Measured scan of single mutants.
Amino acid sequence: EPSQADLDALLSAVRDNRLSIEQAVTLLTPSSGGGSGGGSMDAKEILTRFKDGGLDRAAAQALLAGRTPA
Rank of each mutant, 00 (worst) to 15 (best):
T48I: 13
T68F: 15
A24M: 03
T48W: 04
A43N: 05
A60P: 00
G54I: 12
D8N: 07
G66P: 07
G33Y: 06
G33Q: 14
L11I: 03
L10P: 00
D8G: 06
S36T: 12
A60D: 00
L7N: 03
E45T: 07
R57E: 08
K44A: 07
R67G: 14
T29V: 13
S36L: 10
A59Y: 04
G39I: 13
V25Y: 05
R49L: 12
G38E: 14
L7E: 02
D6L: 15
Q23K: 10
L11K: 00
V25A: 08
S3H: 08
D52T: 08
S32K: 10
I21Q: 01
I21K: 01
R67F: 15
S31I: 15
L27R: 06
L27E: 04
L19F: 03
A43V: 10
R67D: 15
G66W: 05
L10A: 03
N17Y: 03
S20I: 02
S31P: 10
L55G: 01
Q4Y: 15
V25Q: 03
L7D: 02
A43M: 11
T26E: 15
G38C: 14
L55T: 02
F50S: 00
A43I: 15
E1L: 14
A62E: 15
L47E: 00
P30C: 11
L28M: 06
L19Q: 02
S32C: 14
S20F: 02
P2Q: 12
L47C: 01
Q4R: 10
G38L: 15
S36A: 15
S32D: 14
I21H: 01
D42N: 10
E22I: 06
G34T: 13
L27G: 03
D42P: 06
L28T: 02
D16H: 08
P2Y: 12
R49Y: 03
G34A: 14
K44L: 08
S20G: 05
L28S: 02
A9R: 09
D52L: 07
F50N: 00
K51Q: 04
L19M: 10
L64Q: 01
P69D: 09
T68Q: 13
A58M: 10
G37I: 14
L10V: 11
G53H: 04
L63G: 05
R57G: 04
L64A: 01
Q4T: 14
T48D: 04
Q61A: 12
A70D: 15
L27A: 05
G34H: 07
R15E: 12
P2S: 11
R57A: 12
T68P: 11
P69Y: 02
A59G: 07
G39E: 12
D16R: 05
D56E: 06
S31N: 11
G37D: 07
S36N: 12
R67T: 15
G39C: 10
L47P: 00
R49H: 05
R15I: 13
Q4M: 15
S31C: 15
S20E: 04
G33H: 13
A5H: 10
A62I: 12
D6H: 14
S3F: 14
L63H: 06
A62V: 08
E1H: 11
P2R: 10
T26A: 15
L10H: 01
A58N: 09
L28K: 01
G39P: 12
E22N: 07
T68K: 06
D8Y: 06
R18S: 09
I46Q: 01
T26I: 15
A60Y: 00
T48P: 01
G35W: 02
T29C: 07
T29H: 12
G53W: 02
G38S: 12
I21Y: 01
P2T: 12
G38Q: 11
V14R: 00
D52C: 13
D6C: 15
L63A: 12
Q4V: 08
V25D: 02
G38D: 13
Q4E: 15
L27Y: 07
S31D: 14
Q61Y: 07
G66E: 13
P69T: 08
G35P: 14
E1F: 09
R57W: 15
G37E: 09
D52H: 10
A70I: 10
D16W: 03
D6A: 11
D42Y: 06
G39V: 10
D42Q: 08
K44G: 05
K44W: 11
A59T: 14
K51G: 02
R18K: 14
F50R: 00
G39F: 08
R49Q: 08
A62S: 13
G37M: 12
V25T: 06
E1N: 13
L55F: 04
K51L: 09
D52R: 05
D8P: 03
G33V: 10
G33P: 11
I21L: 04
I46H: 01
A70S: 09
A13D: 08
L55N: 01
L47F: 07
G38N: 14
A59D: 11
E45M: 05
P2A: 12
A62P: 01
S12T: 12
E45G: 07
E45A: 07
S31W: 11
A60Q: 00
S40W: 12
G34K: 11
A43C: 10
D52S: 07
